[in-house]
């Protein structure tokens, strides 16, 4: 049925048509669940649309975007996200490489350590948040207790009441949750680097540090690209940890918390959709440069 005749009169399948038919269900599903909501959300973002104010639902153009961008709470949330993003990328990247190298070198307990390391990655973010809240609880959290027992501090530190410390704690939690997966990626990459490279470099008089910086690190670049994307998306999408640690406190909100609050607490779908589009645009710009850079590396 999906076939045609060639020059010799033989029946051959029309491969393009067949492929299109096979792809159609997938296109419909993705179109219906991804692209349709994206288009619908854009439509909402141009309307004054609060669910509890049914009478005010009207087209307002880009007014919602203006309101969001001039809202101090949005700017606070953006700054919080950027701070967390920088901390997560810098500390997360260093930790991921370190853990990956340690796992690669610990041949005796390698499998056991890998299994242990992966546990935080498997925990739901909200559970992570609650667990770390007990650790960093301002009064008598575990960390304060340990520091006081060790006589390093006299009075408990308010880890999550100060905004800067709070963002640092959030970054630590994200790193703790994300590093296992990143480290496994790096470990897989390290396993594929032949030992002969290092051995020949060593014969030429290269030190271990030189082997790492001149041989290992450049060969890790493809997986570091994926690790960067993973760390960036985790930092930009941070939500559960912030809710578990400080609820809907406007000073500490991330972009996701701000957006969730606008849509589901205030039921303001117009403003919430505009916020969602602004976030999508910001993440899209970062994502574009990452992907472009990765593609460039692959070509080289």
């Amino acid at each position: 049925m999906f076939s045609c005749f060639n020059m010799e009169g033989k029946i051959v399948r029309n491969k393009n048509l067949w492929a299109a038919i096979l792809l159609l269900p997938c296109i419909l599903i993705i179109g219906g669940t991804v692209f349709l909501p994206i288009i619908t959300t854009f439509g909402y973002s141009l309307r004054d649309m609060n669910l509890t104010e049914v009478t005010t639902n009207k087209f307002v153009g880009f007014e919602n975007y203006r309101k969001v961008l001039t809202n101090p709470d949005f700017r606070d949330a953006l700054m919080n996200n950027l701070t967390v993003l920088v901390l997560v990328i810098v500390l997360g990247l260093i930790t991921s490489v370190f853990v990956g190298v340690v796992l690669n070198n610990s041949s005796r307990f390698g499998s056991l350590l890998t299994a242990i390391v992966i546990i935080p990655w498997a925990l739901p973010p909200l559970v992570n948040g609650i667990m770390w809240k007990f650790i960093f609880f301002p009064g008598y959290g575990l960390l304060n207790k340990l520091l006081m027992d060790a006589h390093l501090i006299n009075t408990p530190i308010s880890w999550i009441t100060s905004r800067s410390l709070f963002l640092f704690v959030v970054a630590i939690i994200i790193i703790w949750r994300t590093v296992p997966f990143c480290a496994i990626l790096i470990l897989a990459n390290l396993k594929n680097i032949p030992d002969t490279y290092a051995e020949s470099f060593e014969l030429e008089g290269g030190s271990r540090w030189q082997i790492f910086t001149k041989i290992t690190l450049p060969l890790l670049i493809p997986s570091l690209g994926v690790v960067l994307i993973n760390l960036t998306t985790s930092a930009m999408n941070v939500f559960d940890e912030i809710i578990a640690l400080s609820g809907y406190q406007s000073d500490n909100a991330s972009l996701m918390v701000y957006n969730y609050s606008t849509i589901f607490n205030f039921l303001d779908f117009g403003m919430g959709s505009a916020t969602a589009y602004i976030i999508m645009l910001l993440v899209g710009i970062v994502g574009y440069f990452y992907v472009k850079n990765m593609t460039k590396n692959i070509k080289v």
């Binding site: 609880f137 301002p138 009064g139 308010s158 999550i160 009441t161 640690l245 400080s246 609820g247």
Partner: peptide
Amino acid sequence: IDPNSVSTG
């Protein structure tokens, strides 16, 4: 008031 109430439910 316990100052840590700012971070408690």
